[in-house]
Simulated scan of single mutants.
Amino acid sequence: MELNIEIPRKISLAYGVACKDLCRELDLPQTAFDILMFLGNNPAYKTASEIVELRHIKANLISVHVERLVQEGYLIRRPSPTDRRKTELFCTEKALPVIRRGRQLQADFLEKVFADTDQETRRAFANLMRRIEENLDGILEGK
């Protein structure tokens, strides 16, 4: 079996193209938009270090853009209730319309990615991705 290593890169590039107009309209750099969307879509994750780890964005970029988002009123920082060394990030009311529009953009993007595929194919793909993730988890856990 052969895997096309270009697909993840093309998805990332195409997503950036899809976000370009909205980011320009909102006067937000792509990285700042990505941070808001990550926090809005993944409420279990609240720290800059989690964004660095899961989104593979350099720590200095996260730091700069989080500071900007705090200054512009999109995010607030709070000390972690479980670890005083950590600071948690939370989206403000101001961020909610951005996240709503971003979610619509993401839904539209997925529709374009899956254009000309029926629901059965989409379900099969989702099931395959879940299976692959489980298999990867097993590899990472040494099973």
Score class of each variant (00 low, 15 high):
residue 118 D to K: 14
residue 80 S to R: 01
residue 43 P to N: 12
residue 37 M to S: 00
residue 26 L to D: 06
residue 20 K to V: 00
residue 54 L to E: 05
residue 17 V to G: 08
residue 33 F to N: 05
residue 86 K to W: 00
residue 48 A to G: 06
residue 126 A to D: 09
residue 105 L to W: 04
residue 105 L to R: 00
residue 119 Q to D: 07
residue 56 H to I: 04
residue 135 N to P: 08
residue 8 P to T: 00
residue 95 A to Y: 06
residue 111 E to L: 07
residue 9 R to N: 11
residue 120 E to Q: 02
residue 30 Q to C: 05
residue 99 I to A: 07
residue 86 K to F: 02
residue 108 D to Y: 02
residue 77 R to Q: 14
residue 2 E to S: 10
residue 119 Q to F: 13
residue 42 N to E: 13
residue 141 E to F: 15
residue 79 P to G: 10
residue 4 N to Q: 05
residue 35 I to H: 15
residue 66 V to A: 01
residue 87 T to F: 12
residue 135 N to L: 08
residue 65 H to I: 07
residue 28 L to R: 01
residue 142 G to F: 12
residue 132 I to W: 02
residue 80 S to W: 14
residue 55 R to Y: 03
residue 117 T to N: 10
residue 108 D to V: 02
residue 60 N to A: 13
residue 98 V to D: 02
residue 5 I to N: 10
residue 107 A to T: 02
residue 93 E to S: 07
residue 69 L to N: 02
residue 12 S to T: 00
residue 110 L to F: 12
residue 47 T to I: 13
residue 103 R to A: 06
residue 83 D to A: 12
residue 32 A to E: 03
residue 45 Y to P: 15
residue 50 E to T: 14
residue 8 P to W: 09
residue 97 P to F: 13
residue 21 D to W: 03
residue 90 F to M: 03
residue 15 Y to T: 00
residue 56 H to C: 13
residue 13 L to Y: 09
residue 63 S to G: 14
residue 35 I to C: 14
residue 51 I to A: 08
residue 129 M to T: 07
residue 67 E to V: 11
residue 87 T to N: 09
residue 5 I to R: 06
residue 65 H to P: 01
residue 92 T to F: 08
residue 20 K to M: 01
residue 67 E to A: 12
residue 120 E to V: 05
residue 66 V to S: 01
residue 53 E to L: 13
residue 102 G to D: 03
residue 22 L to A: 05
residue 118 D to Q: 07
residue 82 T to V: 04
residue 14 A to I: 07
residue 35 I to M: 11
residue 109 F to P: 05
residue 113 V to I: 10
residue 64 V to K: 15
residue 88 E to K: 05
residue 51 I to Q: 03
residue 31 T to D: 12
residue 2 E to V: 14
residue 107 A to P: 02
residue 115 A to E: 15
residue 109 F to A: 07
residue 84 R to H: 08
residue 69 L to Q: 10
residue 58 K to E: 13
residue 72 E to M: 10
residue 39 L to E: 02
residue 28 L to V: 06
residue 89 L to D: 01
residue 73 G to Y: 10
residue 31 T to A: 12
residue 61 L to H: 06
residue 103 R to I: 15
residue 6 E to T: 03
residue 24 R to M: 00
residue 107 A to E: 08
residue 35 I to T: 01
residue 83 D to Q: 09
residue 21 D to A: 03
residue 88 E to P: 06
residue 42 N to C: 00
residue 36 L to K: 10
residue 13 L to A: 14
residue 138 G to E: 11
residue 87 T to W: 15
residue 143 K to P: 00
residue 82 T to C: 07
residue 84 R to N: 15
residue 127 N to R: 01
residue 23 C to E: 08
residue 133 E to H: 10
residue 56 H to A: 08
residue 103 R to T: 08
residue 100 R to V: 04
residue 117 T to L: 11
residue 28 L to P: 09
residue 34 D to M: 11
residue 77 R to H: 06
residue 60 N to P: 03
residue 140 L to Q: 09
residue 3 L to Y: 11
residue 67 E to Q: 14
residue 86 K to R: 04
residue 112 K to V: 11
residue 42 N to T: 13
residue 91 C to G: 02
residue 2 E to D: 07
